[in-house]
């Protein structure tokens, strides 16, 4: 069983949602990345989403854009990101790692080389924001053949046909974007979101993670009542950006993620 499937089965039994913080690889520093991943896991992250920096992150708001720009300016490359995952895996064999980014850097490395290197490093899932299921058939197969789940996105605008397509191609989980917008936005109508999540869980037969617009423990708790996983990105990235030292970044991340982890652990699931 894949690490992601294992996690969701285990949490199903425990009756709670997963907490999945997002951080950009290489920000706030190169040396902080692996220690931060360990700190997130120790603070109660059930899985980690690791951003692969891209020069033109079209679906990201200012916080993650700037983090990406800073990381690239420090010389971050895709192979370095995979190297950090490998390093993390040397001492953590259980926390799933999901890489999130855009197609072009992956293509530049070569999709097969990327899939092989990611599998060897211990990556569990890959989200490519600009790779739709229609365009991504080949990539999805290449990843799955190496034991990596291709994670597709669904949005408030996605109709039944698209849900069906994602069900037939995705694995691991499906990422539901809570709002019409980019990362860092804050206008989600949570009643509507949670209704949609209930429907999607039934229609997809896959765990549903919810992300975009979740910035605090109260919202985490609210979403955790219905979703299988809750993703918190910009709010963490913004706090890390303010940190002057790796030490400070680790402390800030630990404090923030502990509070969010507490929220998922004290929230009763509404639906099974």
């Amino acid at each position: 069983m894949s690490r992601l499937t294992g996690l969701f089965t285990q949490l199903q039994d425990a009756g709670r949602a997963a907490l999945v913080p997002f951080m950009t690889a290489g920000d706030p520093s190169l040396t902080a990345t692996v220690p931060l991943m360990h700190a997130l896991a120790a603070a109660g992250a059930d899985a980690i989403e690791l951003g692969m920096p891209f020069s033109d992150p079209m679906a990201d708001g200012p916080s993650i854009q700037r983090a990406s720009e800073r990381a690239l300016a420090r010389g971050v490359k895709l192979r370095m990101v995979l190297g950090w995952v490998r390093e993390f895996r040397m001492t953590n064999r259980h926390t799933p790692i999901i890489l999130m980014g855009y197609l072009n850097p992956v293509e530049a490395m070569g999709v097969i080389s990327f899939a092989e290197a990611a599998a060897a490093a211990g990556v569990d899932g890959v989200i490519l924001v600009d790779l739709t299921p229609e365009e991504g058939r080949g990539e999805a197969t290449l990843l799955q053949q190496r034991g990596i789940d291709p994670i597709f996105l669904l949005a408030p605008t996605s109709g039944p046909e698209r849900v069906a397509r994602v069900r037939s191609m995705g694995s691991g989980f499906v990422y539901y974007v809570s709002l019409r917008g980019i990362t860092g936005a804050t206008s989600a109508d949570w009643v509507e979101v949670l209704q949609r999540v209930r429907d999607l869980r039934r229609q997809l037969g896959l765990p549903v993670a919810v992300g975009f617009g979740i910035r605090d423990a109260a919202t985490v708790a609210r979403v955790a009542a219905e979703a299988d996983a809750v993703v918190v990105g910009s709010a963490l990235v913004e706090q890390l950006a303010e940190c002057a030292t790796d030490q400070e970044a680790i402390q800030v991340a630990t404090r923030f993620v502990q509070a969010l982890a507490e929220a998922v652990r004290t929230t009763e699931r509404v639906c099974a």
């Binding site: 739709t132 365009e135 597709f152 996105l153 605008t157």
Partner: peptide, 12 residues
Amino acid sequence: GGRFVAETLVTA
């Protein structure tokens, strides 16, 4: 060519 966009835009 093709259509490489965030899911939110596909329906539009």
